[in-house]
Design a protein around this nucleic acid. Structure first.
Length: 321
DNA sequence: CAGATTTGACCGGC
DNA sequence: GCCGGTCAAATCTG
């Protein structure tokens, strides 16, 4: 009982902290956006970069908060993000924490003869894993604007650890986990499944939030996966819209300029980026597009866009119990 | 050579 | 027994 209380306190603390953080970042961003571009052209890109950082920070804070809310409260939360040019994306938190876990109950040594230590470790982690908050995001891709959704998480590096054909599904499901699982004990995982009804939609199910300090994850490594077209991924921050479009048409794989080709599939895996890390998306699209074709998030907070400039509403207003 | 992906096998839940 | 999720050896990539 006491424990629960402590937990709540911790959660509340974290929640408040995250919200405050997001709020402050938002204020700054709002101020920046509101400011007439008194900046010299030269610093405009830097300004854009800064905005990007702030934006990521905001999203991160809110996502964490959401995760916490979802995790600590049973009522399902449906977050629907709507943004002018962006297609609606749905966050569908699944089982908050109901499932008590033990994927692989008490097994000390499986058929594969792994070491005991590993097994026990695994056991522990498995249980823990099931306790992690879980939610699903539907990300739609449209040739016109590329990927649409809150995938600000290319910043994270994911490592694919499996792929399975799912009964009744046209496309296989891919399993990813944070690259820093072992080094930083980060248990964030995600599953990516292409919708069979609408192949432009990808259902990304996340479990657990990142606890790794992406500081080390830095480098925008195209964690992508040169796998088959199945394992979709969203273009990191792709390059030319044309290429993107092309890729989308073909197999939803996108190449990143800097990368030597290879099928750099994008990774649509948003999560909760502690902070910004990538380069400046805007640079990629230069004047080709007004805003990132894939990552319009910035617009979500841009007063000039159709959406409510007051991002806070982006949360409360869109959460339904 | 280190790190990532592929892929078949294994495991627990239903 | 089937199915989804995960593991880990083999393989690939830069």
């Amino acid at each position: 009982m006491e424990g629960k209380k402590d937990m709540l306190n911790w959660e509340q603390k974290t929640l408040v902290s995250e919200l405050i953080s997001g709020l402050e970042a938002a204020k700054k961003l709002q101020a920046r956006l509101g400011e007439p571009s008194s900046l010299p052209p030269s610093s405009s890109s830097r300004a854009a970069e800064m905005n990007e950082i702030l934006m990521k920070q905001i999203l991160s804070s809110y996502e964490k908060s959401l995760a916490i809310v979802n995790w600590s409260s049973a009522p399902p939360v449906q977050l629907i993000l709507k943004a002018g040019s962006i297609a609606p994306v749905t966050l569908i938190p699944e089982s908050p924490v109901s499932i008590n876990g033990s994927p692989r109950s008490e097994d000390f040594l499986d058929g594969r003869g792994s070491s005991n230590t590993h097994r026990q470790n695994h056991l522990f982690n498995s249980k823990k894993r099931k306790m992690l908050p879980k939610w699903t995001e539907k990300v739609r891709m449209s040739p016109e604007r590329g990927l649409e959704g809150p995938h600000q998480d290319d910043v994270y590096s994911w490592r694919k650890y499996g792929q399975k054909d799912i009964l009744g599904a046209k496309f296989p499901r891919s399993y990813y986990r944070c690259t820093h699982r072992s080094t930083q004990n980060c248990w964030a995982t995600k599953q990516v499944q292409r919708s069979d009804s609408d192949s432009t939609v990808f259902e990304v199910t996340y479990r657990g939030t990142h606890t790794c300090s992406r500081a080390t994850a830095a480098a925008p490594p195209p964690p992508a996966s040169p796998e088959k077209q199945d394992t979709i991924t969203k273009p990191p921050i792709a390059q030319k819209p044309n290429d993107l479009l092309e890729s989308l048409k073909t197999s939803l794989t996108v190449r990143t300029e800097g990368l030597d080709e290879g099928e750099d599939v994008f990774s649509l895996f948003p999560n909760t980026p502690p902070f910004y890390d990538y380069g400046t998306p805007n640079d990629y699209f230069g004047g080709l597009m007004e805003s990132s074709p894939i990552f319009d998030v910035v617009d979500w907070f841009n007063p000039t866009v159709e959406i409510n400039p007051e991002f806070p509403t982006f949360l409360p207003d869109s959460i339904y119990y």
